[in-house]
Every structure is written in structure tokens, then in C-alpha cells.
Amino acid sequence: MNTALDTLPKIGAPATRALTEAGYPALRDLAGVPRAELAMLHGVGPKALGIIQGALERHDLSLG
């Protein structure tokens, strides 16, 4: 059974590919990861980071 933590939120194909290739295939993998580290990935911009942070907060988690 997939939960919201098992998948990435809808952030766009380039950002999804970049996160998956960097070893973050699920939302739970992003908890505690520094925003600056994710921002260096191609396709992961402020909008995607905001969506990710919001999704994490719904599970009482956060980016680093």
C-alpha cells in the first residue's frame, strides 16, 4: 500500500527525475535534507522546494 510518504509530490518531471536520480525516490527520503543541497539539483527550484516542504509538514516532518 502506497502512502503519501512513499511517493514524491507533484513537482514536475525535471525535479522528480533529479530527486530520484540523486537517491530521493520518496517524500520520506527528503526529511531532514538541507534545502540548499536540493536546490543544487537541476529542476529543483523554489516552487518545488515549497511543495516538498508543505508535503513534509503534513506529516510533521521538514527539510533540513
Rank of each mutant, 00 (worst) to 15 (best):
A48V: 02
M40S: 06
G45H: 07
I11S: 09
M40I: 00
Y24P: 03
V33N: 05
L49S: 03
L8T: 04
Y24D: 00
R28D: 05
G32N: 09
L27A: 02
G45I: 06
V44F: 11
G32I: 15
L61I: 14
E21R: 11
K47A: 15
L30Y: 00
L8E: 10
D6Q: 03
L19S: 10
P34R: 13
H42W: 08
I52N: 02
A39K: 15
A22R: 08
R58A: 15
A13V: 04
Y24F: 15
I11K: 00
L61E: 08
E21G: 04
N2P: 15
G54L: 02
A15D: 06
Q53C: 01
V33T: 11
L27P: 12
R28E: 14
Y24A: 00
L27N: 08
L5T: 00
R28F: 07
L27H: 13
E21S: 06
A55G: 06
N2S: 03
A15L: 12
I52S: 09
H42A: 08
E37A: 15
Q53S: 10
V44E: 05
L56K: 02
H42N: 13
E21N: 14
L63T: 04
A39E: 13
L27C: 09
G45Y: 11
H59V: 07
K10G: 00
A31H: 12
P14F: 04
P25R: 05
S62A: 15
T16P: 05
M1I: 08
A4W: 00
A39L: 10
P34I: 07
G32P: 13
Y24M: 09
D60R: 08
A26Q: 13
A39S: 14
P46W: 00
L27V: 01
S62R: 11
V33P: 01
L30G: 08
E37P: 05
L63D: 06
Y24K: 06
L56D: 02
G32F: 13
P46S: 11
A18V: 07
I52K: 12
A18F: 15
A36H: 15
G64R: 11
P34S: 04
I51F: 00
K47C: 15
L8N: 06
R17S: 04
A55T: 04
P34N: 10
P46N: 13
A39Q: 14
A18G: 05
L61M: 15
P14G: 13
R35G: 02
S62K: 05
V33G: 03
P14L: 15
L41P: 03
A31V: 09
Q53N: 11
S62T: 10
M40A: 15
A18N: 13
G12H: 10
L61Y: 03
I52Y: 08
K10V: 10
R28W: 10
I52M: 09
A15W: 04
I51Q: 06
A13R: 12
R35H: 14
I51M: 07
Q53P: 04
G12M: 07
A26C: 07
I52A: 11
G64C: 07
